[in-house]
């Protein structure tokens, strides 16, 4: 089963990338995610492993995932090593206009349990609205946090410029 969600964020791709490539941010913006921990020595980049869990229905579902694609500021994909089968992908695309940075963000997630037959198919269908809702809320929270961070940085830059001008 594949579900996805998209959103436009008023920030350049590198600002969004700082959030989606940093495992420390996930618990703050990912809806339904109850656990997102680095597993191993490598915190980010190709080959980084994370233990992640998302609450869906009566269980926290997930497992060990590994980053299998890492195209800076554009694509980040992971696939499951343990737990239910899952594959997720962040796609960041620059849609900036003049003086108006904007990034089109897409989050896709495929999940299932190979070999689970009819019940597996049924469970995927039943879980889909919940997972889709988690993805949608995650993107909304990501947008809020990234844009808030942009505003905070802009304000800090303005303050620094004013301080430099007065001194």
């Amino acid at each position: 089963m594949r579900v996805g969600a998209t959103i436009d964020i008023s920030a350049p791709p590198d600002a969004v990338w700082d959030f989606v490539s940093d495992p420390g941010h996930y618990l703050h913006f990912m809806s339904g995610v109850t656990r997102f921990e680095v597993a191993g020595d490598q915190p980010r980049g190709l080959g980084a492993r994370y233990r992640m869990l998302m609450r869906v229905g009566s269980a926290e579902i997930g497992g060990l995932v590994e980053v299998v694609e890492c195209d800076e500021h554009r694509d980040l994909a992971w696939t499951s090593v343990q737990g239910i089968d899952q594959r997720a992908r962040w796609r960041l695309r620059d849609r900036s206009l003049e003086h108006a940075p904007r990034t089109h963000v897409e989050l896709r997630m495929s999940y299932g349990v190979a070999g689970s037959g009819l019940f597996g198919w049924l469970a995927e269908q039943v879980a889909a609205p919940t997972v889709r809702g988690h993805l949608r809320r995650s993107l909304q929270q990501l947008k809020r946090q990234v844009e808030h961070e942009q505003l905070r940085r802009a304000a800090a830059a303005r303050r620094a410029a004013r301080t430099a001008a007065t001194s």
Binding site: A59, I84, V113, G117, L122
Partner: peptide
């Protein structure tokens, strides 16, 4: 383990839809 894994969707359907199961504090 493979049998358990393949039966998780069945258990999940039963636990989530029929018993509206909620498990807290697994951590």
């Amino acid at each position: 383990p493979d049998y358990i894994r393949e039966s998780l969707p069945r258990l999940w359907l039963l636990a989530s839809l029929y018993f509206r199961g909620e498990v807290r504090g697994l951590g």
